[in-house]
């Protein structure tokens, strides 16, 4: 059977698309509250740190950020193609390497909280 990375990439694209559509707008709203100087209590240092230190909180944060990274990396690759950047192999490599590096960074950050 031919091996292909498509199911993995597509899996994160589909799952990520769903998660991003459901949760990203409300997270942006929370950050916007902080940006106008009224951070909601969950964005306070103590609360957010406690949430990220809890195993379930880590899991939620990891799920959201990991899926966002990979689904948007895949979408940015397609967007580059649509805007006329036809070096798809190079573009794909750059975005997937960036997503991989960011995922590693995410794991390091979460394991240090």
């Amino acid at each position: 059977m031919a091996k292909s990375n498509k199911p993995i990439i597509w899996g994160t694209f589909a799952a990520g698309g769903e998660v991003v559509s459901l949760i990203t707008p409300v997270i942006i709203v929370l950050i916007l509250f902080a940006a106008i100087g009224r951070p909601p209590s969950a964005l306070g240092y103590e609360q957010l740190h406690a949430f990220a230190a809890w195993w379930f909180g880590k899991l939620v944060i990891f799920g959201i950020v990991f899926l966002s990274l990979w689904s948007q990396a895949h979408r940015l690759r397609i967007t580059c193609f649509d805007f006329g950047l036809r070096a798809d192999g190079l573009v794909a490599t750059v975005f997937y390497v960036l997503a991989g590096a960011a995922s590693l960074w995410l794991i390091l950050i979460l394991s240090s909280i």
Partner: peptide, 18 residues
């Protein structure tokens, strides 16, 4: 995807600062 991609990086930076 450009905006959501950049926002994801902002979240990541925020977590790093945390």
């Amino acid at each position: 995807s450009i905006f959501i991609g950049i926002f994801t990086v902002i979240m990541l930076v925020g977590l790093a600062r945390l």
